[in-house]
Amino acid sequence: MISLTTNTGGLKLESPAILASGILDENGYTMKRILDEGAGAVVTKSIGTEERNGYFSPVVAPEGSYLINAMGLPNPGIDFFRDEINIALKSGKPIIGSIFASNTDDFLKLALKMQDYGVSAVELNLSCPHVQGFGSEVGSDPVLVKDIVKNLKGTLKIPVWSKLSPNVTSISEIARASSESDALVLINTVRAMAIDVESKRPVLTNVYGGLSGKAIKPVGLRCVYEARKECDIDIIGVGGIYNYRDALEYIMAGASAFQIGTALMEYGRKVFGDIAMDLESYLKKNNVANIKELVGVAVQ
């Protein structure tokens, strides 16, 4: 019997295909639909302590094989997110609450509320590349990262995932700093920009944004591979996964599950079910009983 069932980051997933944070995950009904239509789990939009509108548009610069976005961490604030989680939980599948903050205390407050709301794990946004004081500015400080993870692990009953940035000199150093987490999520978007030559100005209102999509798959793979060699911890791969072959590359580099975001721009919500089906066919054809057997097989 072929199986895609995966144990990763302290959770058991029916499918290793997870919705990445920031995409179609601020409305509870949308998260529920994505789960109902085949995702193994969803990660919510990153939620902070206060309501934020995010940046004025343009917030995206889409091109054929990539997307640059600077949404600006829009979120209703943790207190108003309870209702959305409640709606999404009706799917019966795992919800992972993504949170962002600038210090350990706020991370802890947010994580405890998420736990109280009934999420299965929290994902720490240590990697958003376009908002001052948050995300990668926190995640590039190994001492702070270590403190945040240690405190959350010591207090929470649910698993803690750390989503890391590729915009650092050494991914291994940050991976070590967050190695008390239940999983590393690699990678967030790559800091980038676009310029419109007619109006002679940056396209994104925020100037800088995060690059995602096909273009960043090789960077994500490299980070997963390096982290796999560095520490013995579950890794969830993300960055440019559009089909089962992309997913397999991440798995063979050492990821035990993977997240999908920008591919929705091309394939829509059905991408989760399609990739799962193609993975099953691949396993069957290659006489592999469980996808777990392929994790890290390419690591030398």
Partner: peptide, 20 residues
Amino acid sequence: MKCGIGLCDSCSVNGYQVCV
């Protein structure tokens, strides 16, 4: 709408994206 391409979730109605 913010993105217009089915990613940001601003325009969704019961899980359907008005933009796509």
